[in-house]
Design a protein around this nucleic acid. Structure first.
Lengths: 246, 246
DNA sequence: CGCTTGATTGATTTGAGTCAATCCCAGTGG
DNA sequence: CCACTGGGATTGACTCAAATCAATCAAGCG
C-alpha cells in the first residue's frame, strides 16, 4: 500500500470520528498524516461515570473524544468539585499532564464514551520532524488556554443567568461546528455537572431553565434542549466580549 | 569567543533577570543555550499602567517579566475586567496568542516593568532541532494551564476569605521561589486588581485584610504585607486540594 | 496646600445558596 | 404488564455572604 492510500484510510477513520477538521491531522500533508496515524491507538470504550485519570497519574498522551462526553475537574477536600471543561466528540483533553508529565486533575466519562489516545512521546518525536504538526499542537494548546480564560471570565464576572446563557451558546456552537443542529440537542451532562461547571447551585440551574422557558427563549425537557430564540440568548451575554469577534 | 563563553555570558544575563531557573534556558545544554540567546530580544522598559498588547494584536512571541509586574485580563463590554493572571519577575505570559497567532486578552504593566520577548518563529525553528527545548515549552505550557485551572477552582468554589488566603499563599510562594522573603513583601498590584483577580468587590478585599489583621494572621500597610501566621493562612484553604501535593 | 485617586469603613440590599419537600422518570423485578 | 423504587430534577421558603451605595480617609503630587 502506498503512502497516499494509507493517508486516505486514516482520513476516513478520522472523519468517522468527527475529528477531521478539529483533531491533529488538520493541515498535515498525506505523508505527515500517515506517520501520525501509525502512532494513534485505536479507540477505547467506557461506560458512563468511569474515571479515565486522576491527579498524580502518569501522563501518556493527548485524549480525543470520539463519542459520548468527558468532564475534567478539580476537587476540594470537602468534596465539592469544580468542573474545568466538558469535552464533546471531536474535542481533546489531557493537556493538564504536560507540566510534570503527570495529570493534575480528574477526567471522567459522562456517558457511554469512546476515545483515542495519541501517545505523547511519539507525537513529540514527530514534532521534531514536522513543522506543520508543531503548529497544530500550538493551536491546540492556545485553544485550551483561551477556553479556560473565557471560563475564568464567566466564573468571576458573570451573573447566574449570564453563565447559563453563555454555557448554552457554547454547547450550541460546538454542536454546530460538528454538523449537528445548533438549535436542538441533547445535553450529555447532568444538572449537577452544569452547576459545577458554572459555579452555581443545582437549584439555581433548575430555576434558570424554568425562567428561560417562561420567557420563550427555549424549551427544555430533561436533557433535550430546543433553543427558540437564539438572538435573545445572545443578548443576555452581549455585555461580554464576543469570543468569536475575530 | 567560543560556545562555552557565550553560554556563560547568557547565563549571567539570565540570572540577573531572575529567570535562570524558571525561564526557557533551564535544562538546555550550553550549546543549545547559545543558539536560543541569539534570538532573545534585549529587555524593554515600560511605565506603570501601559498596555503591552490587546485582543486581536498579532502574536510575536513569548514574554518574560524581568522586573515589575504585568497583569493579563479580559473585559466585559460594560467595562468590568477579569484579571486572568499576575506575572511577576521570572514569569512568562503571552501564550494566549498561540491559537490564532493573535492575542485574545489584554496585557498591561502594573508598575515600572522590564521584560524580554522571545520571538516565536525563531523559538519554533529551534524546537525542531532541540528536543530539550520542546520539553521546556511543554512544561511552560502545562504550567500555565494548571495555573488557570487552580484559578477556576478558586473562582467557582471558594469563599471570599479562602480566595484571599489562596492568593496571598500563591504570591508568597512565588516570591520565595525567587529567593525573596515569603513572609514580608510588597504587593505589586492595587486593591482593585486583587479584587478583579479574585472575582470579588474591592470593599470585600479591604474588609478581609482588616479581618486577617485583627486575627493576627498578618500585618498590612498599603502594599506592604507581613505574614505573621503562615500556618493559619494555610488552614483557611486546607479544605482545598493542595496544589503542591506532588 | 488643595486636588485627585485609591483605600477604608459603615449601612443597606440582594442574588443566589441552603434547607426541605415533593416530583418524575428509568430501571427493576414480580 | 405494571407496581415499586431510588436518584436526579424541580419547587418553595427562608437565610446569608457579599455586593452595592454612600461617606470619609489618606497619601502622593503639582
Amino acid at each position: 500500500m502506498n503512502q497516499l492510500q494509507l493517508a486516505k484510510q486514516l482520513k476516513v477513520s478520522c472523519e468517522s470520528c468527527s475529528l477531521s477538521d478539529l483533531c491533529l491531522p488538520k493541515g498535515l500533508s498525506p505523508f505527515e498524516l500517515e506517520k501520525l496515524d501509525d502512532y494513534i491507538e485505536r479507540p477505547r470504550k467506557l461506560e458512563p461515570n468511569v474515571q479515565i485519570y486522576q491527579p498524580g497519574e502518569k501522563f501518556f498522551g493527548i485524549y480525543a473524544v470520539r463519542t459520548g462526553g468527558v468532564k475534567t475537574y478539580l476537587t476540594k477536600k470537602t468534596g465539592e468539585q469544580q468542573i474545568l471543561g466538558f469535552h464533546l466528540p471531536g474535542e481533546i483533553f489531557g493537556l493538564d499532564g504536560l507540566e510534570h508529565f503527570a495529570h493534575r486533575c480528574y477526567a471522567s466519562t459522562m456517558d457511554n464514551t469512546s476515545y483515542c489516545v495519541i501517545p505523547f512521546e511519539r507525537l513529540d518525536e514527530l514534532c521534531g520532524e514536522l513543522p506543520e504538526l508543531r503548529r497544530q499542537i500550538y493551536k491546540l494548546f492556545g485553544h485550551e488556554l483561551n477556553c479556560d480564560h473565557a471560563h475564568e471570565l464567566l466564573l468571576g464576572q458573570q451573573t447566574a443567568h449570564e453563565r447559563l446563557a453563555t454555557f448554552l451558546l457554547s454547547i450550541s456552537s460546538r454542536f454546530k461546528n460538528r454538523g449537528f443542529s445548533p438549535n436542538s440537542f441533547m445535553l450529555p451532562m447532568s444538572r449537577h455537572d452544569i452547576a459545577c461547571y458554572l459555579g452555581i447551585a443545582v437549584e439555581t440551574v433548575s430555576r434558570l431553565f424554568k425562567s428561560f422557558q417562561q420567557q420563550g427563549i427555549l424549551k427544555i425537557n430533561r436533557k433535550q434542549v430546543d433553543i427558540q430564540d437564539m438572538e435573545r440568548l445572545r443578548e443576555m451575554v452581549i455585555n461580554c466580549e464576543d469570543p468569536e469577534s475575530f
